[in-house]
Amino acid sequence: MSAVPTEISAVKPAGGFRAFLGDPMGLFGLTIAVLLILSALFAPWIAPYDPAALDVPAKLQGPSAAHWLGTDELGRDVLSRAIWGGRVALTVALVATTLSVMIGGLLGMLAAMGPRWLDYALTLGFDTVRAYPVIILALAIGPIFGGGMGVLLGLLVATSVPYYARVMRSSVIAQSSTEYVEALRAMGMGRARIVLRHILPNVIGPILIIASMDIPAYITAEAGISFLGVGVKAPATSWGLMLDQGFRYVGHTPWLVIAGGLPLILATLGFTFLGEALRDAFDPKLRRRG
């Protein structure tokens, strides 16, 4: 068992879980992600105030012992709103990622294995959806459908499905031209079995890692679309809505918009570092994706 595949080649194994634990940025990301998830899960117990409780006399205050992140224009506690907003952000990110990967992966596999006309049709469909700039489409479609979390999710999923579908399609096609797949075809194995039993285990890992790295993008999209007033709606709370309110008082109390942005920055940075570390530890080849 002394097989050295090529003489001059650096064999750099993926380090797996241990490598991940040795990465300080990854641990930083993991800590933030865990804290955010916990605070989202236990928001009703953690948040010091009811996020919707008005206290107009105490409006637009800076940070204090009573209100760590101050209060907004209606005197609501910004910290409590941030905690509840995290709940919305994480729900949107999680649901959108899961649905997009599942639907996209399925369509991508269909395009790769199905008859040629289906591949053409699906690819053209993916290209069509990708032709819309997402935020601008949301701005137009959101109001027509009345906005809200359902429309927001539908929009995010619909516009990211083609992305995962294309990744899945090209990975399956790349695997299909390998010799091991040809060997399976030569023994008379059907396409479905080849893809599900042999190709899928080789492509699913990278796609899941890509998906985990896209979580901050969904958090950003939710906040952005809600900021524009066509996403999550009051009485629900969203980091984007907090930014929007803060921005209205930017000339009067800049603190409000600064505080409104903090949880968003923390979350996107934390999840990004986590995703990067996961990728480096489990699939360094994906680095190429940039």
Binding site: P216, G224, G261, T268
Partner: peptide
């Protein structure tokens, strides 16, 4: 990584 992850709306507001 930091530049990529911070949402553009935040960069616009904080920058201003």
């Amino acid at each position: 990584v930091s530049l990529i992850s911070v949402p553009p709306v935040i960069i616009a507001i904080y920058g201003m």
